[in-house]
Design a protein around this nucleic acid. Structure first.
Lengths: 222, 222
DNA sequence: GCAAAAGTGTTCCAGATACACCCATGT
DNA sequence: ACATGGGTGTATCTGGAACACTTTTGC
C-alpha cells in the first residue's frame, strides 16, 4: 500500500526540546537513534505527524511517550525546513519546547529499554540533523521568556521555597540574582501563595513553602 | 506521473502576510481565489513548497510574485496545521510576514490581471481557510515588535521625515504618540542619519529628511 | 497675519538596582 | 558557638511619561 500524490510532498515531523531542571542544571531530554541516518547519535525526541493529527497533539504525544508526563507547558518554537536537513527525504520539522517540573521527570527515561537521557544544555553531545540549532533556539527563547513572563514557575514542583525558585532563574540565566530584589519582583507578580507550611532542610532556618496561584497560566509581566 | 510514499504525507505551503502602510492605514495584500475551496474568497498569497526549496525561499517567491519586491523584511510567524484547515487534503502552512516599504508597493497589484488588492487590517473581508487567524497573529507580532525593535523602519522609503515615521508608529499601534518623547526615543536608538536635506510639503515649515543608518538591520532595543 | 506642521527640554514618577544585617536551625 | 541558608527594607539610579511654546513656511 502506498500513498500517491501528483506533486512531491515533504514529510512533516515534530521535534520537542524537553527541558527540566536537575542537579542544578538546565537539562534536555535526548534519545539515541537506533537506526537510519545519524545512527547512534543523540537526537531530540520527535516523529512524523499523523495525517489527521494536530501539530501540537503530535508534539504532546512525543512528550508523553518519552517522559510519561501530560499537562505541562508546551509551545511552538519554530519550523525548520532546510531542504537537505534529512538525507533520506525532504523533512520539515515543526519544533516545540516543553517544560517538565522538577518532580515529574523520574518515571520513564530509565525504565525504558531505549537509550534515553537528560543532558546539560551547556555540554551536549554531537546531535543528529540540525537538532543543535533547535536546542540553541529553544534555550534562547526560554531565557528571553524568563525575563518577561512567569514561565519559570512551570518548572516548579507542587510546593517549593523561594530559594529553590531563585536557583531555577539563576540556572537558566546563568548568573546570580540578588535575593531581596528577586523576592520583591515575585511579590509584585502576585503569582505565588504562601502555604503556611515550612520545610526543614539542613543546618539552617526552615524555609516557607509556596504554591503557584494559577498553575497552568504563564502570564506576561513587565 | 505520481509520487508514492509508504505513509501519507501532508502538503506544505507557505502563506505570507504582506504589510504596508498606505493612505494612513496598515494594509495587507490579499488575492482572490480563482478556484477550489473558498472560490472567490480573499486569501493570503501563498503556495506549495517545492520539494527542494527552502521555506523562506518559498515565502520570498510568493512575495516577489505578488508584489515584485525583493530584499524586504521577512520573518517566520507560526506554523498552522489543524487537520481540517483545508478541505481538500491535509495542508500545513508555515506562515511568514513581510514588511514592504511605502514607496515600493505600486508595481504589481494593479498591473496583474488577477484580483489582488491591499486591505486595511481593521476592515478585512471574510478570508479563506484560517487566514483571518494568521493575519491576526501577524498583526499582534508586528505591534509587539514595534515596541522593542526598530522594525518600523522597514516600512520607510529612502528618505523620510520624523513626522512620517511617527505616523507609521501611530497607525500600527492605533494610538497617538507624544512628539518630543518619540523623537527622544529614536535619537537614543541611534539608527537614523540626518541627510541635511529638507522637504517642503505644505503651508508650514519644511521637515528634515532622514535615512536609515543600517537599512537591512532590525535591532532589538529597550 | 494666520493656519499648519516642524522642532525643541525639563520635570516627575515608577520600576530596577545596589546593598547588609538578623533569624532559625543542626551539629 | 558556629556554619548555613532564610528572611527583610532603604537609598539611588534610570528610563518613560507628561507637558507648551517658538519656528518656518504658504496662502
Amino acid at each position: 500500500m502506498t500513498y500517491n500524490y501528483k506533486f512531491p510532498h515533504p514529510a512533516v515531523t515534530t521535534d520537542v526540546v524537553i527541558f527540566t531542571i536537575d542537579e542544578d542544571s538546565l537539562k534536555v531530554l535526548l534519545v539515541r537513534r537506533g537506526h537510519g541516518p545519524f545512527e547512534d547519535r543523540w537526537a531530540l525526541p520527535g516523529g512524523f505527524v499523523e495525517i489527521d493529527e494536530d501539530l501540537e497533539s503530535c508534539a504532546l504525544r512525543e512528550l508523553a511517550e518519552e517522559t510519561g508526563v501530560t499537562g505541562v507547558f508546551l509551545e511552538q518554537l519554530y519550523t525548520f525546513g532546510a531542504p537537505q536537513r534529512d538525507p533520506r527525504e525532504r523533512v520539515i520539522t515543526v519544533a516545540y519546547y516543553a517544560l517538565v517540573p522538577i518532580d515529574r521527570l523520574h518515571p520513564r527515561p530509565a525504565s525504558d529499554a531505549r537509550d534515553v537521557g537528560w543532558f546539560c544544555c551547556d555540554s551536549l553531545p554531537a546531535l543528529a540533523f540540525d537538532h543543535a540549532d533547535i536546542v540553541r533556539m529553544a534555550q534562547q527563547r526560554l531565557c528571553a521568556k524568563l525575563q518577561y513572563s512567569t514561565i519559570a514557575l512551570q518548572f516548579m514542583p507542587g510546593r517549593f521555597t523561594l530559594g529553590e525558585l531563585q536557583r531555577v532563574y539563576e540556572i537558566i540565566l546563568g548568573e546570580p540574582l540578588d535575593k531581596r530584589n528577586f523576592r520583591k519582583r515575585l511579590r509584585a507578580y502576585d503569582c505565588l501563595v504562601d502555604t503556611g507550611q515550612q520545610r526543614r532542610n539542613g543546618n539552617h532556618r526552615p524555609a516557607r513553602l509556596y504554591t503557584v496561584k494559577e498553575p497552568g497560566a504563564v502570564r506576561i509581566v513587565r
